[in-house]
Design a binder for these strands. Structure first.
Lengths: 120, 120
DNA sequence: TGAATAGTTGAGCAGTTGTTCAACTATTGA
DNA sequence: TCAATAGTTGAACAACTGCTCAACTATTCA
């Protein structure tokens, strides 16, 4: 293994140099894992994932979601802002009312995969 | 809609009773969303998701992972304990060395789905 | 048996997160 | 044009998370 690819050793002797080096080559740059974690963090809250699951069924306004989730409109709005900025939901305004819906089918797939894991 | 299914109203007039009630019937019990969020929370950290992605390639010991992730063995061990208790990874001991690997193909699927969303 | 090494654990700390409250903007309709 | 209502925003706070440190256990081997 070339010097520029060598990883810093730890304090032990057990390290499997060849395997570690091979695996390291298949890993993504650090930034990719930060982005992935940031994406999956959006599903890592019960309120938010319930909100997304509700939007799987039908587009809903802020008030509808507040009722369904049992939290204030403010809390819903804060979460929707996060989700909108991350391109997980999209919105359309009709007069005073803003309707939210899923922006992307990956949301459904990730949630379904999660439930599948839990239910088997 | 029957009284026992009626949801508490919010302070607005816009609520779409019929849609909200219909969506509410399709939702899971609160506990399911807590479980789902707890599962997906395990993927919501850059160190942990990189660790899982490394284990996709090959089984690795604590020390290997510490080197790959650039953190202490203690940090890795704490994370592995979480992941093991959640049945995302499994371990086998060989002498002094404990080898970790993925317990379940859903890990791979969730990570792949996440990367797919990010890369499109 | 005892030194060396791989791994685990608990305490404690710094940084992050989700909520509410209060004040704000946007749109409607009388 | 002004009151009513849907939604947004920023500040503040309590709860949670991931890390390191230090001390511990488990296993090997001389």
């Amino acid at each position: 293994m070339a010097d520029e690819e060598r990883l810093e050793l730890c304090d032990c002797e057990c390290i499997h140099d060849d395997v570690v080096c091979a695996v390291n080559k298949t890993l993504q740059p650090a930034r990719e894992y930060e982005n992935l974690a940031a994406l999956l963090k959006l599903f890592a809250d019960a309120t938010r994932v319930k909100l997304l699951h509700a939007l799987e069924q039908h587009e809903l306004c802020v008030c509808d979601l507040a009722v369904l989730l049992g939290v204030t409109k403010s809390a819903v709005s804060h979460q929707l802002k996060l989700l909108r900025m991350s391109n997980l939901v999209k919105s359309r305004r009709e007069g005073q009312i803003v309707y939210y819906s899923l922006a992307d089918d990956h949301v459904r797939q990730i949630i379904d995969m999660g439930f599948e894991h839990l239910w088997e």
